[in-house]
Amino acid sequence: MKKVGKYVVAAAIMAFLLYHSIYFKKLDDVKKQRQRETFNAAQYARDFWDNQLFRVLDKTVDVKELIELFNTNMNQAIRKYGKAPGVSRSYAYLIRGNGKILSIAQDFLQLSVREPQTNPDIKIASSLYIPGNAVRDASGLVDVSEFSDTMKFNEISSEINKILVKEVIRPFLEKKPKIGQTIRFFGATQVAQDATEQNLFGQVISSSTETKEFQLVKVVPIRFEFE
């Protein structure tokens, strides 16, 4: 009887040790865990840029038309063309246009896209660092729900911006754009719903004896071409 008792206790101890030595996980859970750990935002952004983005460039809106809508009917602009990944008062737009370079600063060019082309309407970023999500969100191609961790969704924007600096802005700056030249462009912009509550786009918002500051649509370039 004592021997049986000893065997039972020994078996119980063995079972306890075995139970805590072996773990079972669902294969799907392991695969998902690995996917989280191995997500490559640079690769995703590369594929986005090479294979997806240019397919939607035919869905861009002419920036002249968009500025008119912003100034006259912002809600319609949002309904027709605006995109946002969730709940937001700011919407992203994919745009195209051509315009005359009126000024060149360190981080941007001011262009006039509306006749008589004497005042600027848009500001195109030409900095070697681009923040924000304009291109990702304006494309409408990246769904936040695809990602278990929203940091990956954010990293994609960061990688897209690095590509556009390297492959759009730098080559453009190397061609040494000049005031008075006309350029054709595709780009993305983010505009707040209440952007035109105080000043319309194209209006002067402050002035001194030397300079005027205008309310401008800020654009992140996807493509530049000299005309």
């Binding site: 969730g86 709940v87 936040v144 990602f147 929203t150």
Partner: peptide
């Protein structure tokens, strides 16, 4: 429902 809804 969408899996994730970001609120700006």
């Amino acid at each position: 429902f969408p899996k994730k809804v970001p609120v700006a």
